[in-house]
């Protein structure tokens, strides 16, 4: 097997609230101050091969977006390193910055990621011109190509974001990311705010472009159906850790981690060969706060199988199959 395109090596990201005035005074006077700290991502390793799509699934606060941003070189990891083709995505030092243009991101809300006062043609051309992928004279034709590739009329280049519908705006966001000619695309909930019929159009566009441009992608979503449709492999995250990862078909057919099992059974499914209304078997309890995650396995307070060791020892990812891994003390190979 060839070397992976993207490699996340034990990356962690802590967010710390700035100390309040009172805390700072207490620290100056020699008192002890407990820092408010969120471990958004906790020692995650993940590698993504060329032309592979990996789906990242989890509920809010599980760290999937943070992990995506580390991979995209938007956030520097607190520890660990993200590498693209063996080279770090971000520089080291006090003010780390992104070193590559080969990773680009598509965000959930194109209303927030597109400047409302810029014509979309300018928004798309800005990056490629700045990085010398195209000269200013050729930028108009370049933008026209990018727009027609995502199924928009090239004449739209002179319009503003508010003149487009949600689905069209997401196409623009995709065009802008692809204009940088990336090898890796990070898609952070790209279809979450769209209507079902528009969502299908954007997903189809993604599938088409992925094939024609031979793209590698990380597809972040809370929607298990969407992820199943586009991903080769799926990673399930819970409170900053990957709890299970494996080929899409295996994860959906035979989930090993109790959280994955519960997640899959609590999601309402469109059941067209109908047995009538379904009884739900939801996961009990609330999502714990990421500021004070439970000890041991983060899932143990909600897990029906939890034992004594689950409360004290955090489980490592263990192989469940050739390429299928789960972080559970009790999961067994089949």
């Amino acid at each position: 097997m060839s070397a992976p395109l993207l490699e996340l090596d034990a990356v962690s990201k802590k967010f710390r609230r700035p100390m309040s005035l009172g805390d700072r005074i207490a620290a100056k006077l020699g008192g002890t101050v407990v820092p408010h700290e969120v471990r958004a991502v906790d020692g995650v390793s993940l590698s993504v091969s060329h032309s592979e799509t990996v789906g990242l699934v989890g509920e809010s606060g599980c760290g999937k977006s943070t992990l995506g941003r580390i991979a995209a070189g938007i956030l520097p990891p607190t520890s660990g390193v993200a590498r693209l083709d063996g080279k770090p995505v971000m520089s080291e030092g006090r003010h780390p910055h992104k070193l590559t243009t080969r990773v680009q991101t598509v965000f959930q809300d194109p209303f927030a990621s597109l400047n409302p006062r810029r014509r979309i043609g300018d928004a798309i051309a800005e990056g490629p011109v700045a990085h010398g992928l195209v000269d200013r004279a050729g930028s108009r034709a370049y933008v026209a190509d990018q727009l027609s590739r995502v199924g928009l009329d090239p004449s739209y280049a002179s319009r503003f974001p508010h003149q487009f519908s949600g689905g069209q705006r997401q196409r623009i966001a995709i065009a802008r990311a692809l204009a940088m000619q990336p090898d890796l695309l990070i898609c952070d909930e790209p279809v979450a705010s769209l209507d079902v019929s528009i969502q299908a159009q954007v997903l189809n566009l993604f599938l088409e472009l992925r094939q024609s441009l031979n793209l590698t992608a990380i597809f972040i979503s809370h929607d298990l159906g969407v992820v199943r449709h586009v991903s080769d492999r799926v990673a399930i995250m819970y409170l900053g850790r990957i709890v299970e990862i494996g080929p899409t078909a295996d994860i959906y057919a035979a989930p090993k981690h109790p959280y994955t099992q519960a997640l899959l059974s609590s999601v309402p499914r469109l059941n067209r060969r109908h047995e009538g209304r379904r009884a739900f078997k939801p996961i009990a309890g609330e999502l714990p706060s990421p500021t004070s995650p439970p000890t041991g396995c983060h899932f143990h307070p909600r897990c029906p199988l939890a034992e004594a060791q689950c409360r004290s020892v955090a489980p490592e990812l263990r192989p469940m199959g050739l390429t299928h891994w789960a972080a559970c003390h009790l999961a067994v190979k089949t």
């Binding site: 519908s165 689905g167 209507d195 019929s197 189809n204 929607d223 449709h229 586009v230 469109l270």
Partner: peptide
């Protein structure tokens, strides 16, 4: 029919979803 067909999850993974053209 179009709405139902455009829901991912039932469709063959990786294949194009049936989509309704245009918008509301």
């Amino acid at each position: 029919r179009g709405l139902l067909d455009s829901v991912p999850g039932e469709a063959q993974p990786g294949k194009k979803l049936a989509q309704i053209p245009g918008s509301i």
